[in-house]
Design a protein around this nucleic acid. Structure first.
Length: 112
DNA sequence: GTCATGACAAAGA
DNA sequence: TTCTTTGCCATGA
Protein backbone atom coordinates (compact mmCIF):
# COMPACT_ATOMS: atom_id res chain seq x y z
CA UNK A 1 0.00 0.00 0.00
CA UNK A 2 2.05 2.76 -1.05
CA UNK A 3 0.36 6.08 -0.76
CA UNK A 4 2.30 7.18 -3.77
CA UNK A 5 1.47 6.27 -7.32
CA UNK A 6 2.11 2.82 -8.64
CA UNK A 7 5.66 1.73 -9.05
CA UNK A 8 5.39 1.97 -12.81
CA UNK A 9 4.25 5.54 -12.70
CA UNK A 10 7.19 6.45 -10.51
CA UNK A 11 9.56 5.06 -13.06
CA UNK A 12 7.70 6.79 -15.85
CA UNK A 13 7.89 10.08 -14.03
CA UNK A 14 11.64 9.86 -13.59
CA UNK A 15 12.08 8.79 -17.20
CA UNK A 16 10.21 11.88 -18.38
CA UNK A 17 12.62 14.04 -16.41
CA UNK A 18 15.55 12.88 -18.48
CA UNK A 19 16.80 15.96 -20.37
CA UNK A 20 17.19 16.13 -24.11
CA UNK A 21 20.32 14.48 -25.35
CA UNK A 22 20.85 12.63 -22.11
CA UNK A 23 20.44 9.03 -21.05
CA UNK A 24 20.30 7.14 -17.79
CA UNK A 25 20.42 3.57 -16.61
CA UNK A 26 17.89 1.24 -15.10
CA UNK A 27 20.03 0.92 -12.02
CA UNK A 28 20.21 4.70 -11.58
CA UNK A 29 16.44 4.99 -11.67
CA UNK A 30 16.09 2.02 -9.38
CA UNK A 31 18.50 3.61 -6.97
CA UNK A 32 16.60 6.86 -7.11
CA UNK A 33 13.39 5.05 -6.28
CA UNK A 34 15.10 3.25 -3.41
CA UNK A 35 14.75 -0.01 -5.25
CA UNK A 36 18.51 -0.06 -5.47
CA UNK A 37 19.28 -3.48 -6.84
CA UNK A 38 15.92 -4.03 -8.43
CA UNK A 39 16.88 -2.57 -11.76
CA UNK A 40 14.78 -5.28 -13.36
CA UNK A 41 11.68 -3.65 -12.03
CA UNK A 42 12.60 -0.47 -13.86
CA UNK A 43 12.84 -2.33 -17.12
CA UNK A 44 9.59 -3.98 -16.30
CA UNK A 45 7.96 -0.62 -15.76
CA UNK A 46 9.34 0.53 -19.07
CA UNK A 47 7.64 -2.37 -20.72
CA UNK A 48 4.40 -1.00 -19.32
CA UNK A 49 5.20 2.48 -20.60
CA UNK A 50 3.81 1.66 -24.02
CA UNK A 51 0.64 3.61 -24.58
CA UNK A 52 1.17 5.62 -21.42
CA UNK A 53 0.47 9.33 -21.62
CA UNK A 54 2.39 11.46 -21.78
CA UNK A 55 4.75 9.31 -23.68
CA UNK A 56 7.75 8.03 -21.77
CA UNK A 57 11.17 8.54 -23.41
CA UNK A 58 12.14 4.95 -22.78
CA UNK A 59 14.76 5.27 -25.49
CA UNK A 60 16.76 7.43 -23.10
CA UNK A 61 17.04 4.55 -20.68
CA UNK A 62 19.74 1.99 -21.31
CA UNK A 63 21.52 -0.60 -19.25
CA UNK A 64 24.72 -0.06 -17.30
CA UNK A 65 26.88 -0.69 -20.33
CA UNK A 66 25.01 1.91 -22.37
CA UNK A 67 23.59 -0.82 -24.56
CA UNK A 68 20.13 -0.49 -26.06
CA UNK A 69 18.95 -3.62 -24.39
CA UNK A 70 15.33 -2.66 -24.83
CA UNK A 71 15.41 -1.77 -28.48
CA UNK A 72 13.67 -4.98 -29.39
CA UNK A 73 10.85 -3.94 -27.15
CA UNK A 74 10.03 -0.90 -29.27
CA UNK A 75 7.77 -0.89 -32.24
CA UNK A 76 10.71 -1.78 -34.40
CA UNK A 77 14.24 -2.85 -33.45
CA UNK A 78 15.55 0.38 -34.96
CA UNK A 79 13.13 2.80 -33.32
CA UNK A 80 15.21 3.27 -30.21
CA UNK A 81 18.37 4.05 -32.08
CA UNK A 82 16.56 6.41 -34.41
CA UNK A 83 15.12 8.35 -31.51
CA UNK A 84 18.51 8.64 -29.85
CA UNK A 85 20.15 9.84 -33.03
CA UNK A 86 17.48 12.51 -33.33
CA UNK A 87 18.67 13.80 -29.98
CA UNK A 88 22.23 14.05 -31.21
CA UNK A 89 23.09 10.91 -29.28
CA UNK A 90 25.49 8.75 -31.22
CA UNK A 91 24.66 5.09 -31.27
CA UNK A 92 26.77 2.35 -32.74
CA UNK A 93 26.47 -1.37 -32.50
CA UNK A 94 23.42 -1.03 -30.29
CA UNK A 95 25.50 0.94 -27.82
CA UNK A 96 25.45 4.62 -26.86
CA UNK A 97 28.71 6.35 -27.61
CA UNK A 98 30.06 8.81 -25.04
CA UNK A 99 27.70 7.15 -22.64
CA UNK A 100 29.57 8.45 -19.61
CA UNK A 101 29.33 11.99 -20.94
CA UNK A 102 25.60 12.05 -21.52
CA UNK A 103 24.78 9.91 -18.54
CA UNK A 104 22.16 11.58 -16.40
CA UNK A 105 21.80 10.37 -12.83
CA UNK A 106 18.44 11.35 -11.26
CA UNK A 107 19.83 10.75 -7.79
CA UNK A 108 22.42 13.46 -8.44
CA UNK A 109 20.71 15.85 -10.79
CA UNK A 110 17.48 15.73 -8.86
CA UNK A 111 17.59 16.59 -5.23
CA UNK A 112 15.66 13.94 -3.38
C1' DG B 1 -0.11 -20.84 -1.95
C1' DT B 2 4.29 -21.93 -5.33
C1' DC B 3 7.01 -21.54 -9.80
C1' DA B 4 8.89 -19.16 -13.75
C1' DT B 5 10.11 -14.98 -16.18
C1' DG B 6 11.99 -10.25 -16.95
C1' DA B 7 14.15 -3.55 -21.50
C1' DC B 8 19.39 -5.29 -15.03
C1' DA B 9 23.57 -5.31 -11.93
C1' DA B 10 27.24 -7.03 -9.26
C1' DA B 11 30.24 -10.72 -7.90
C1' DG B 12 32.75 -15.05 -8.75
C1' DA B 13 35.52 -18.36 -11.67
C1' DT C 1 39.53 -10.34 -19.91
C1' DT C 2 34.89 -12.90 -20.79
C1' DC C 3 31.48 -16.17 -19.23
C1' DT C 4 28.51 -17.87 -15.61
C1' DT C 5 25.95 -17.51 -11.43
C1' DT C 6 23.29 -15.11 -8.00
C1' DG C 7 20.22 -11.43 -6.21
C1' DC C 8 16.83 -8.12 -6.70
C1' DC C 9 11.29 -7.37 -6.58
C1' DA C 10 6.97 -7.46 -9.16
C1' DT C 11 3.79 -9.80 -12.33
C1' DG C 12 1.41 -13.72 -14.34
C1' DA C 13 0.04 -18.61 -14.52
Amino acid sequence: MNSNKDFFEQVHQVARLIPYGRVTTYGAIANYLSLKSAARMVGWAMNASHGVKPKVPAHRVVNRNGMLSGKANFETPTTMQELLEKEKIKVQNETVLDFEKIFWDPAKELNF
